[in-house]
Amino acid sequence: MAKKKRVTRKQLLKEPDEFLTVSARAIQFVASNQRSVFVTLIGVIVVALAFAGFRYFSNLSERKAYAMFEQGRLHYLAGISGHKASDAQEKAIEQFEAVIREYPSTHAAQLSLIAYADMSYRKGDYQKAIELYQKALGAFSGEGAIQKLIWDGIAYAYEAQKDYKSAAEYFQRITDTQDEFMKADAYYNLARMHEALNNQEKALKAYNCLVQDYPESVSFQIAKEKVLRLKGALTSK
């Protein structure tokens, strides 16, 4: 009988995807689809803010702007749900552009910037998404949770452009904040960007932060795997 060939630790480190645990593979799938989670979350935020703003503002410009935004919002949600997604997205963009152009100082225009940015990302127009998100940052500069969502959107858009350095900068903005909202995912994404930049030390540090501080995170198991592999890789150098 032929002797079974032993797989060395060095080979394991070179081919990590072949030796991930079953649970880590499942978590990796969830983590790789975080952008879909973000899309749903930003949709919920936009809807909540829309209704809150509609009750609050009473002047004519706001009412007209919100009426247009509401039409865009309905198409936006249809686009997310996948029902005639392409047509719905185009109609949503038309409405959001009109609100921003005709009523730029309204709250509805601020919401339209976020929704339009997300629609641009979904269409693959990443530079347009970044520009719109940047404008939205000015409108929501004092609102921490929304600001984090916008940073997250900018980071994903930069990642889609393979500008991993800029993406890392925006994910790190989230990890540097005091409150815990979105920080676990941001550490995971920050680590991914450092891996893409071949900066194993910084990737290890970010994965370690996730493992130590966020054991309930959906990315916890795969982060543990990454910590072990990166430590081994750095030790073997």
Rank of each mutant, 00 (worst) to 15 (best):
M1N: 13
K14E: 15
K14S: 15
P16R: 07
A24R: 03
V30C: 07
Q34T: 08
V39G: 00
L41D: 10
L49D: 11
A52Q: 13
G53Q: 07
Y56H: 09
F57V: 13
F57R: 12
S61L: 05
E62N: 14
R63M: 11
A65M: 07
A67P: 00
M68P: 00
F69S: 00
E70S: 12
G72S: 06
L74N: 13
L74T: 10
H75T: 05
Y76I: 06
S81G: 09
S86V: 14
D87Y: 06
Q89W: 01
E90K: 07
E94K: 11
E97F: 07
R101Y: 09
T106N: 05
L111C: 07
A115R: 03
A117E: 08
M119S: 13
S120G: 06
R122F: 03
A129H: 01
I130W: 00
I130M: 04
E131L: 12
L132I: 03
Y133V: 00
Q134S: 14
F140G: 01
D152M: 13
G153T: 11
G153I: 07
A157T: 04
E159Q: 14
E159I: 00
A160I: 09
Q161G: 03
K162D: 09
T175C: 09
D176P: 08
Q178A: 14
Q178L: 08
F181S: 08
M182G: 01
K183L: 13
K183I: 10
Y188C: 06
N189F: 05
R192E: 10
M193I: 10
M193Q: 12
H194I: 01
E195A: 01
E195N: 08
E195R: 05
E201T: 09
L204M: 04
A206V: 07
Y207S: 01
C209E: 14
C209W: 03
L210K: 08
V211Y: 01
Q212D: 15
Y214K: 03
Y214N: 01
E216T: 13
V218A: 11
F220E: 12
F220W: 13
I222H: 02
K224G: 12
V227A: 04
T235C: 05
